[in-house]
Amino acid sequence: MLDQTAEALNNESTQSSLSAEQYKRKMQQRKTVQAKRLAERSQQKGLIIVHTGNGKGKTTAALGMVLRSLGHGFKVAIVQFIKGGWEPAEKAALNQWSDQLDFHAMGEGFTWETQDRDRDIQTAQLAWDQALAYIQNPAYKTVLLDEINIALKLGYLSVEQVLAGLDQKPADSHVILTGRGAPSPLIDRADLVTEMTLVKHPFKEQGIKAQAGIEY
Protein backbone atom coordinates (compact mmCIF):
# COMPACT_ATOMS: atom_id res chain seq x y z
CA MET A 1 0.00 0.00 0.00
CA LEU A 2 2.81 2.41 0.85
CA ASP A 3 4.52 1.61 -2.46
CA GLN A 4 1.34 2.44 -4.37
CA THR A 5 0.94 5.68 -2.44
CA ALA A 6 4.55 6.65 -3.15
CA GLU A 7 4.09 5.93 -6.84
CA ALA A 8 1.00 8.13 -6.96
CA LEU A 9 2.79 10.94 -5.15
CA ASN A 10 5.73 10.67 -7.53
CA ASN A 11 3.51 11.36 -10.53
CA GLU A 12 5.20 14.48 -11.86
CA SER A 13 2.62 15.09 -14.59
CA THR A 14 0.30 16.81 -12.11
CA GLN A 15 2.88 18.79 -10.16
CA SER A 16 3.21 21.66 -12.60
CA SER A 17 -0.41 22.69 -11.99
CA LEU A 18 -0.09 22.84 -8.19
CA SER A 19 0.06 26.04 -6.24
CA ALA A 20 3.06 26.67 -4.00
CA GLU A 21 1.10 25.63 -0.93
CA GLN A 22 -0.30 22.50 -2.60
CA TYR A 23 3.17 21.52 -3.77
CA LYS A 24 4.56 21.97 -0.25
CA ARG A 25 1.84 19.77 1.25
CA LYS A 26 2.44 17.11 -1.39
CA MET A 27 6.17 17.07 -0.68
CA GLN A 28 5.51 16.82 3.06
CA GLN A 29 3.23 13.85 2.40
CA ARG A 30 5.89 12.25 0.18
CA LYS A 31 8.47 12.69 2.94
CA THR A 32 6.17 11.01 5.49
CA VAL A 33 5.41 8.07 3.18
CA GLN A 34 9.06 7.63 2.27
CA ALA A 35 10.09 7.62 5.94
CA LYS A 36 7.53 4.88 6.65
CA ARG A 37 8.77 2.84 3.64
CA LEU A 38 12.35 3.09 4.86
CA ALA A 39 11.34 2.08 8.38
CA GLU A 40 9.66 -1.04 7.00
CA ARG A 41 12.78 -1.97 5.04
CA SER A 42 15.44 -2.29 7.71
CA GLN A 43 16.82 -5.62 6.48
CA GLN A 44 20.23 -5.81 4.81
CA LYS A 45 21.61 -8.68 2.73
CA GLY A 46 24.15 -9.37 0.07
CA LEU A 47 22.59 -9.08 -3.36
CA ILE A 48 22.84 -10.94 -6.63
CA ILE A 49 22.58 -8.25 -9.29
CA VAL A 50 22.08 -8.78 -13.03
CA HIS A 51 22.60 -6.15 -15.73
CA THR A 52 21.38 -7.43 -19.08
CA GLY A 53 19.63 -6.31 -22.26
CA ASN A 54 20.75 -5.09 -25.67
CA GLY A 55 21.35 -1.50 -24.62
CA LYS A 56 24.72 0.00 -23.78
CA GLY A 57 25.75 0.68 -20.18
CA LYS A 58 25.65 -2.66 -18.40
CA THR A 59 29.33 -2.72 -17.43
CA THR A 60 29.37 1.04 -16.88
CA ALA A 61 26.55 0.80 -14.34
CA ALA A 62 28.28 -2.10 -12.62
CA LEU A 63 31.51 -0.12 -12.38
CA GLY A 64 29.56 2.62 -10.63
CA MET A 65 28.70 0.10 -7.92
CA VAL A 66 32.34 -0.96 -7.82
CA LEU A 67 33.38 2.65 -7.23
CA ARG A 68 30.87 3.00 -4.41
CA SER A 69 32.22 -0.14 -2.75
CA LEU A 70 35.79 1.11 -3.08
CA GLY A 71 34.75 4.47 -1.68
CA HIS A 72 33.43 2.72 1.42
CA GLY A 73 36.78 0.98 1.84
CA PHE A 74 35.52 -2.47 0.82
CA LYS A 75 37.56 -5.05 -1.04
CA VAL A 76 36.36 -5.68 -4.59
CA ALA A 77 37.17 -8.18 -7.33
CA ILE A 78 36.46 -7.83 -11.05
CA VAL A 79 36.70 -10.75 -13.46
CA GLN A 80 36.08 -9.96 -17.13
CA PHE A 81 34.99 -13.01 -19.13
CA ILE A 82 34.92 -11.82 -22.75
CA LYS A 83 36.89 -8.60 -22.71
CA GLY A 84 40.59 -9.06 -22.26
CA GLY A 85 41.99 -9.23 -25.74
CA TRP A 86 43.03 -5.65 -25.00
CA GLU A 87 43.96 -3.84 -21.79
CA PRO A 88 40.70 -2.25 -20.60
CA ALA A 89 40.88 1.46 -19.79
CA GLU A 90 38.82 0.94 -16.65
CA LYS A 91 41.61 -1.24 -15.25
CA ALA A 92 44.07 1.63 -15.64
CA ALA A 93 41.62 4.08 -14.07
CA LEU A 94 41.08 1.82 -11.04
CA ASN A 95 44.77 1.21 -10.38
CA GLN A 96 44.78 3.78 -7.59
CA TRP A 97 42.74 1.30 -5.52
CA SER A 98 45.18 -1.55 -6.06
CA ASP A 99 45.22 -2.32 -2.33
CA GLN A 100 41.44 -2.89 -2.35
CA LEU A 101 40.82 -4.14 -5.86
CA ASP A 102 41.74 -7.30 -7.75
CA PHE A 103 41.13 -6.96 -11.49
CA HIS A 104 41.39 -9.85 -13.94
CA ALA A 105 40.71 -9.38 -17.66
CA MET A 106 40.66 -13.09 -18.49
CA GLY A 107 38.82 -13.19 -21.81
CA GLU A 108 40.55 -13.17 -25.17
CA GLY A 109 38.26 -10.80 -26.98
CA PHE A 110 35.15 -11.27 -29.07
CA THR A 111 34.24 -14.75 -30.25
CA TRP A 112 34.70 -13.79 -33.90
CA GLU A 113 38.28 -12.83 -33.05
CA THR A 114 39.25 -16.07 -31.32
CA GLN A 115 37.43 -18.38 -33.76
CA ASP A 116 38.17 -21.34 -31.49
CA ARG A 117 35.21 -22.58 -29.44
CA ASP A 118 37.17 -25.13 -27.40
CA ARG A 119 39.69 -22.46 -26.44
CA ASP A 120 36.89 -20.03 -25.58
CA ILE A 121 35.29 -22.62 -23.30
CA GLN A 122 38.61 -23.33 -21.58
CA THR A 123 39.24 -19.60 -21.07
CA ALA A 124 35.76 -19.06 -19.65
CA GLN A 125 36.15 -21.99 -17.27
CA LEU A 126 39.48 -20.61 -16.01
CA ALA A 127 37.82 -17.22 -15.49
CA TRP A 128 34.99 -18.92 -13.58
CA ASP A 129 37.45 -20.75 -11.33
CA GLN A 130 39.02 -17.40 -10.47
CA ALA A 131 35.63 -15.77 -9.98
CA LEU A 132 34.41 -18.55 -7.71
CA ALA A 133 37.42 -18.11 -5.43
CA TYR A 134 36.42 -14.46 -4.95
CA ILE A 135 32.72 -15.27 -4.54
CA GLN A 136 33.53 -17.69 -1.73
CA ASN A 137 35.96 -15.32 0.00
CA PRO A 138 34.27 -13.29 2.76
CA ALA A 139 36.99 -10.63 2.54
CA TYR A 140 35.43 -9.37 -0.73
CA LYS A 141 32.31 -7.27 -0.38
CA THR A 142 31.58 -6.90 -4.12
CA VAL A 143 32.47 -9.21 -7.00
CA LEU A 144 31.81 -8.10 -10.58
CA LEU A 145 31.57 -10.85 -13.20
CA ASP A 146 31.70 -8.77 -16.37
CA GLU A 147 30.16 -10.29 -19.53
CA ILE A 148 29.56 -13.62 -17.80
CA ASN A 149 26.05 -13.64 -19.28
CA ILE A 150 27.61 -13.85 -22.74
CA ALA A 151 29.63 -16.88 -21.64
CA LEU A 152 26.41 -18.45 -20.36
CA LYS A 153 24.50 -17.60 -23.53
CA LEU A 154 27.19 -19.18 -25.72
CA GLY A 155 27.39 -22.31 -23.56
CA TYR A 156 30.94 -21.71 -22.34
CA LEU A 157 29.62 -22.02 -18.79
CA SER A 158 26.54 -23.84 -17.53
CA VAL A 159 23.80 -22.01 -15.68
CA GLU A 160 23.84 -24.78 -13.08
CA GLN A 161 27.49 -24.27 -12.16
CA VAL A 162 27.07 -20.52 -11.87
CA LEU A 163 23.94 -20.81 -9.69
CA ALA A 164 25.72 -23.37 -7.51
CA GLY A 165 28.62 -20.95 -7.14
CA LEU A 166 26.33 -18.09 -6.20
CA ASP A 167 24.86 -20.29 -3.46
CA GLN A 168 28.34 -20.30 -1.88
CA LYS A 169 28.69 -16.56 -1.48
CA PRO A 170 28.71 -15.09 2.06
CA ALA A 171 25.39 -13.66 3.19
CA ASP A 172 26.56 -10.04 3.14
CA SER A 173 28.52 -9.94 -0.13
CA HIS A 174 27.26 -8.68 -3.49
CA VAL A 175 27.81 -10.33 -6.89
CA ILE A 176 27.12 -8.41 -10.11
CA LEU A 177 26.71 -10.32 -13.38
CA THR A 178 26.65 -8.35 -16.63
CA GLY A 179 26.07 -9.08 -20.30
CA ARG A 180 23.19 -9.40 -22.71
CA GLY A 181 21.10 -12.56 -22.85
CA ALA A 182 21.03 -13.41 -19.14
CA PRO A 183 19.29 -16.80 -18.82
CA SER A 184 15.92 -17.00 -17.10
CA PRO A 185 17.12 -19.15 -14.16
CA LEU A 186 19.72 -16.49 -13.31
CA ILE A 187 17.15 -13.71 -13.55
CA ASP A 188 14.85 -15.71 -11.27
CA ARG A 189 17.67 -16.19 -8.75
CA ALA A 190 18.77 -12.53 -8.73
CA ASP A 191 17.63 -9.93 -6.22
CA LEU A 192 18.05 -6.96 -8.57
CA VAL A 193 17.72 -7.13 -12.36
CA THR A 194 18.11 -4.22 -14.76
CA GLU A 195 17.52 -4.57 -18.49
CA MET A 196 19.20 -1.96 -20.67
CA THR A 197 16.96 -1.16 -23.65
CA LEU A 198 18.54 -0.12 -26.93
CA VAL A 199 16.84 2.95 -28.43
CA LYS A 200 19.59 4.35 -30.65
CA HIS A 201 23.23 3.47 -31.18
CA PRO A 202 25.75 5.45 -33.26
CA PHE A 203 27.35 2.31 -34.72
CA LYS A 204 24.06 1.19 -36.22
CA GLU A 205 22.45 4.55 -36.95
CA GLN A 206 25.44 6.58 -38.10
CA GLY A 207 28.20 4.10 -38.84
CA ILE A 208 30.37 5.47 -36.02
CA LYS A 209 32.95 3.02 -34.71
CA ALA A 210 33.71 2.31 -31.05
CA GLN A 211 35.54 5.23 -29.45
CA ALA A 212 37.99 5.57 -26.56
CA GLY A 213 36.27 6.77 -23.42
CA ILE A 214 32.84 5.63 -24.61
CA GLU A 215 33.06 1.95 -25.54
CA TYR A 216 36.52 1.17 -24.15
Rank of each mutant, 00 (worst) to 15 (best):
Gln122Met: 07
Ala212Thr: 11
Ile187Pro: 04
Leu177Glu: 04
Val193Gln: 00
Ala89Ile: 10
Glu195Pro: 01
Ser184Tyr: 05
Gln100Val: 06
Arg68Gln: 04
Pro138Leu: 05
Ile78Thr: 13
Trp112Ser: 09
Asn149Ala: 04
Leu157Thr: 04
His201Lys: 06
Ala212Asn: 08
Leu70Lys: 08
Gly57Trp: 08
Asn11Pro: 02
Thr32Asp: 13
Trp112Ala: 10
Glu12Val: 15
Ala210Asp: 07
Arg180Pro: 12
Asn54His: 13
Ser17Gln: 11
Thr60Val: 12
Thr5Asn: 03
Thr111Trp: 03
Glu160Ser: 06
Arg25Ala: 15
Ala171Lys: 14
Gln168Thr: 14
Arg189Leu: 08
Glu40Gly: 07
Ile187Gly: 01
Arg189Asn: 07
Arg117Asn: 02
Ala164Val: 07
Gly57Thr: 09
Lys36Asp: 11
Val159Phe: 03
Lys45Val: 10
Arg37Gly: 09
Tyr156Gly: 06
Ile150Thr: 02
Tyr134Gly: 01
Gln22Gly: 10
Lys200Gln: 15
Ile208Cys: 04
Val143Asn: 02
Gln96His: 04
Met196Ser: 00
Asp172Tyr: 09
Gln34Ala: 11
Glu113Ser: 15
Trp86Thr: 07
Gln34Gly: 05
Thr178Pro: 02
His72Leu: 15
Arg41Ser: 15
Asp167Met: 04
Leu126Ser: 14
Ile121Tyr: 08
Ser158Asn: 01
Arg117Asp: 06
Gln211Ala: 11
Val175Met: 00
Leu166Glu: 08
Ser69Leu: 01
Glu108Asp: 13
Gly85His: 07
Ala127His: 13
Val162Cys: 05
Ile78Arg: 00
Pro185Asp: 14
Ala35Val: 01
Leu186Gln: 01
Val175Gln: 08
Leu186His: 04
Ser173Asn: 15
Lys169Tyr: 04
Trp128Pro: 02
Asp116Ala: 07
Met27Val: 09
Lys24Trp: 11
Asp129Arg: 12
Leu152Gly: 12
Ile48Ala: 02
Asp188Ser: 11
Gly85Met: 12
Ala171Gly: 06
Ala182Val: 05
Val159Cys: 12
Thr194Cys: 06
Ala171Asn: 10
Ile150Pro: 05
Ser42Val: 12
Gln22Asn: 11
Ser16His: 15
Ala139His: 14
Ala8Cys: 08
Met106Trp: 07
Gln136Pro: 03
Gln43His: 15
Arg117Gly: 03
Asp120Arg: 12
Phe81Cys: 03
Tyr23Gly: 02
Asn149Leu: 02
Ala62Ile: 13
Gly53Asn: 06
Asn149Arg: 03
Gly207Ser: 11
Met1Leu: 13
Gln15Ile: 04
Leu186Ser: 05
Asp129Ala: 10
Glu108Asn: 11
Pro185Lys: 13
Gly71Tyr: 11
Leu2Ile: 08
Asn149Gln: 00
Gly64Trp: 10
